[in-house]
Design a protein around this nucleic acid. Structure first.
Lengths: 333, 333
DNA sequence: GTGAAAGCGCTAACAT
DNA sequence: ATGTTAGCGCTTTCAC
């Protein structure tokens, strides 16, 4: 037996009304007499009719679907953002098409094209960096785009983030103030604007204000992975660092564990401040002090901003900066 | 200026061919003369034409999109599966619509309906349990469904998993063998078949084979969260358990940390075996011994199975059991 | 308040 | 190898 789909036409016939009326009922259009509405609703229920969203999308040019470009769902930082995004998407009746990009810009272009072909109403981009090819894809289409947890130096698209310069500066300052002469800065790829133009700048700023000379040998680039962190500690020791501000929580845990495995006491002999305040910072022993980005909220606000853009509402400010904090735990004195 | 979409018709006109020919080119249909193909391709490129997947979906009744019902992306267990799923989905040109369900069956029904309205070609379900209402939604539609990392006792839908009974039995046996008289079983909700009919059964089986009496006071139900684990250790101590097999890694870490915070030595005074072998088991100190479910692979194979079902290929066995292992780390003697 | 009819952009017979 | 022509299931004017 074939999948015998029942359509709006069937409902119309059974209810002895026109397709237009059924459509009105389904879409909550008020211009329907209550009695008619009731009759239609009843038939819909009896026939177990389910509107076909694809046909709807074609006719109305709206899919109530947004694309989400995520480097890796498996990274707590991104999945926390994603959770906030999905929750408010659901709230506004949107669905999320998830696409892992691995921060590979070739794959990203591919993915963005694919998403646009699917006629998503909007796009949330979580890559740390917008390559030029991506940027041109974005500007070519009229589809609204919002960055979550990242910054676009060119401010071409919407974005939700925190004041990364100030946050890193504050963390660095704290480490300096507690007596560390050599505070390392462990960053993700410096090719990413977020790292080179924001976080690193904050680090330098704090150094500057404390009258400490900037020493390039204290700056470390790393992948966003636990293994990288594990391997990094040795280099940190060689550089005679006694503290580190680390851009990714997994990396931070790696460093912390490597330190402890090497018999280094934390925070007595080495202090660490992580950057994302994911669940992981609670799970480590000692628990980790971290810059507290409101991850879930960043995602939620980003999606909310996107709904406004998709509705063509007036946007006062398309770059939204949320507050941050430094949550003190046990990896700092 | 309005979003001036260019359609297959524009391409046909510019290339002086019919829409059908353009369609053939776009879909890689071999029945096109190379010269014609070249001409069309060139126009496509010049006009920057992008096929509208929605129109395509309506005409062909295929959306190359599958729905993914996930309890919580933020949980490493699920996100690891999701990663495997998305990777092979991409490989087969499918996209994933992600929907968090919070294991709330009302929300799940809602979500499934929504996904079916969007005409997804298939569904991957990661809830631990299929409620009756979900089940009836599933059987009502002809859309293929695969469970990833879970079991359907009724075998109505496809599923990919490991032999949970054997795995838990092996873990329990190991704990018993190393001298523990009171091995606790920390489970997720026992309303879930996976826990009550599989894992618990494995636990009992091992007990039985070792001639140890089953003691209900050693069975603990918990939510899948770190906090639950943290709170649970005290109860474990009161029950005089000296070891535990724990169904969720976050919970296991909670127990491990609570134990250490209470001054209990692991593994000397208390042994723990986790169940999912997520990254977390590497990150704890001591590192955690765990049943090793091949998470990524379970996701990948589940998606692969689904592609076959969507293609209406012959399926030899729609319940696929992957191998498991027990990875020894430092939370066991 | 309701209906008729023209698309939305594409695929899939069916012809040629 | 290529063109013609119906739809796919719905929304949306425009009439009435």
């Amino acid at each position: 037996m074939e999948k015998q789909t029942i359509t709006i036409y069937d409902v119309a016939r059974e209810a002895s009304v026109s397709m237009a009326t059924v459509s009105r009922v389904v879409n909550g259009n008020p211009n329907v007499k209550p009695a008619t509405r009731k009759k239609v609703l009843e038939v819909i229920d009896r026939l177990d009719y389910r509107p076909n969203a694809v046909a709807r999308g074609l006719a109305s040019k709206k899919t109530t679907t947004v694309g989400l470009i995520i480097p890796d769902v498996t990274n707590m930082f991104f999945s926390s953002l994603a959770r906030g995004i999905d929750d408010v998407a659901t709230m506004y009746k949107y669905n999320i098409i998830l696409a892992n990009s691995d921060e590979n810009s070739q794959k990203e272009v591919q993915v963005v094209n694919n998403l646009l072909a699917k006629q998503v109403d909007g796009l949330i981009y979580m890559g740390h960096d917008i390559s030029d090819s991506i940027r041109s894809e974005f500007s070519r289409s009229k589809t609204p785009v919002v960055l979550a947890g990242s910054i676009d130096p060119d401010q071409q698209v919407g974005s939700v983030n925190i004041d990364y310069i100030a946050a890193v500066a504050a963390a660095t300052k704290q480490l300096l103030t507690s007596g560390n002469k050599r505070v390392a800065f462990v960053s993700g790829p410096l090719t990413e604007a977020l790292n080179s133009q924001y976080r690193l700048r904050g680090y330098k700023k704090a150094l500057d204000e404390a009258g400490v000379a900037y020493d390039e040998s204290l700056v470390f680039e790393s992948q966003y992975s636990y293994q990288s962190g594990l391997a990094l500690f040795e280099r940190l020791q060689k550089a005679k660092a006694t503290a580190a501000i680390v851009s990714d929580d997994e990396v931070a845990i790696g460093i912390l564990n490597a330190a402890r495995d090497a018999g280094v006491k934390i925070p007595e002999d080495f202090e660490i401040i992580a950057s994302n305040n994911t669940k992981l910072t609670e799970m480590s022993r000692p628990r980790m002090t971290s810059i507290d980005q409101p991850l879930y909220d960043i995602g939620a606000v980003a999606m909310r901003l996107l709904t406004k853009m998709m509705n063509k509402e007036e946007i006062d400010e398309k770059t939204i900066m949320l507050g941050y904090d430094i949550t003190e735990r046990d990896s700092t004195k």
